[in-house]
């Protein structure tokens, strides 16, 4: 179980949260201008990074606020927790989110929470993966 540090409530069990998938995917600036290929990219294609991945989480049974998290998808180590609308803390010059902040799905900022780049260990990194076959 991941131990997730909500920017508003502190460390809580993963079971209190809801996963929101890849962060920083802005709603198309001009939806009417997209062709089928571009719509497919927006609707069905998300990064599937092996390694540091910026993703959205919702503290559904706590403060009910969304926030972003940087997590390693191999070790599951949580590397940073930061507010929606903020840039990725591991990228020097974060790309601006295409000027559509008001309609961007991740623009519901969690307000004042400061980025927490201290890193929250999940504890799961020490659990070795079972390598055995099922029987």
């Amino acid at each position: 179980m991941l131990l997730i540090s909500c920017p508003n409530c502190g460390s809580r069990d993963e079971t209190e949260f809801h996963y929101g998938g890849q962060a920083h995917v802005p709603y198309p600036e001009n939806p009417a201008a997209l062709d089928d290929r571009q719509w497919a990219q927006f609707l069905f294609y998300r990064d599937n990074t092996k390694g540091a991945f910026a993703e959205r989480w919702l503290h559904s049974t706590g403060c009910r606020q969304w926030f972003n998290m940087l997590r390693d998808t191999v070790t599951y180590e949580i590397q940073a927790v930061y507010p929606m609308g903020g840039g990725r803390p591991d990228r020097a010059a974060p790309a601006p989110e295409s000027g559509t902040a008001s309609t961007a799905p991740d623009s519901t900022t969690t307000g004042t929470a400061a980025p927490d780049v201290s890193g929250t260990g999940t504890g799961s990194a020490s659990t070795t993966a079972p390598e055995g076959a099922t029987e």
């Binding site: 191999v74 070790t75 599951y76 079972p130």
Partner: peptide, 19 residues
């Protein structure tokens, strides 16, 4: 032999959460 659904998060770690 038992199973159920995926863990909610993306993961390449060949392990999931105990809950």
């Amino acid at each position: 032999v038992m199973g159920a659904g995926v863990d909610a998060y993306n993961g390449y770690g060949q392990r999931g959460s105990f809950h």
